[in-house]
Design a binder for these strands. Structure first.
Lengths: 185, 185
DNA sequence: TATTATAGGGAATAATCGTTTCCTAAATCA
DNA sequence: TGATTTAGGAAACGATTATTCCCTATAATA
């Protein structure tokens, strides 16, 4: 079932929610429509499950990506590089389920909006925590406002995802986060 | 016809492309479906026209917003503040046609992708120009890379639009651009 | 004035949508 | 082994979709 959900994630990322028909889903998940409706209440429930799975998989990958960082600043840098990798080339074009969700569904589906808001707040809190770690280990100046600066970085990462839909190169993206690191000075 | 297009813009911003039926359009534009199809080839053509109109109206407002700025840095600051105003509260929730378009259509409609790419590149070039102005009038240090730094700012503004869909306050958004201005140091 | 374009409205159309229903085959339990 | 539950697939459902066709009222023309 989880492999099927992974296929669903891919389709939802590429086409968005409204543009993917359950016919698209049956093709991608290799399940007949009857089977999908036996496992999920409706198409929206498939999307919700896909969204949750996408979120936890992505969070775990992010945590792995920063693990090797020695200092708070180093971990921030690795976190931003993680988004660079996700935002360029073919993978970048595929897009992000969170930003797609924010753009497409947040306006008129309060429950899904709740999920998006939660995902973004979690990212924000995660980055703020890394900044605080950096302040303690001396890699980030003590005058830096952790919450507000983390918010800048969330904007940056979401913006990278948008730009990535238009097919930018890794070099462009990497140069962008290089400069953005100045907000930690 | 232009007033009708403005109504269409509003619906497309709130609901996205696929989630707005031509029934929604007839309601918003106060035109019967027959009349819409007399003026436009199909729903996609309505969207394209709405997108173009949205873009020129927005560009003009942006230019007006920065007009009063004395220096390049000042104009950059005013440009970012313009995005703050667009990204908070109810207007922020309504969303941006460009980011919605990037998220929803850029993957499988090459022509529309072209429009999105163009809009983002234009924003980038516009901000890069302001940075160059700042370097000349001394308000921005000469070592600043105009293109790359402008790209950071495009990411920031697009990110603000995404965050704005979740209903942030003006204060949060303004604090964010305040810190982001550090990239001009 | 008489006639002809034209703009717009509303019903009809075919296709596609999400969803349900029913059937088959495999697995589980007694 | 035999009975029963379960997972999955194909077809059919009504609703909704984008689009077209035809009609009416108004404006332009001669």
């Amino acid at each position: 079932m989880d492999e099927a959900l992974d296929k669903a994630i891919r389709v939802f990322r590429e086409r968005g929610y409204h543009a993917t028909s359950v016919n698209d889903l049956t093709g991608a998940m290799e399940l007949a429509s009857g089977s999908i409706y036996k496992a999920f209440r409706d198409k929206r429930a498939v999307f919700l499950a896909a969204f949750d799975r996408y979120k936890v998989a992505r969070d775990e990958k992010l945590r792995n990506a920063i693990r090797a960082g020695k200092t708070g600043r180093d971990r921030i840098c690795k976190a931003l590089s993680f988004y660079v990798e996700a935002s360029h080339g073919a993978e970048g074009r595929r897009g992000c389920l969170v930003v797609g969700c924010a753009a497409e569904l947040a306006t008129f589906d309060p429950e899904i909006a709740e999920h998006v808001t939660g995902a973004l707040r979690k990212n924000e809190a995660f980055l703020a925590d890394l900044i605080r770690q950096g302040r303690e280990d001396g890699s980030i100046p003590p005058h830096i406002d952790a919450e507000a600066t983390a918010r800048v970085m969330v904007c940056l990462t979401q913006g990278l995802r948008i730009l990535g839909k238009t097919g930018r190169t890794r070099a462009e993206m990497a140069g962008t986060v290089d400069i953005a690191m100045k907000v930690l000075a």
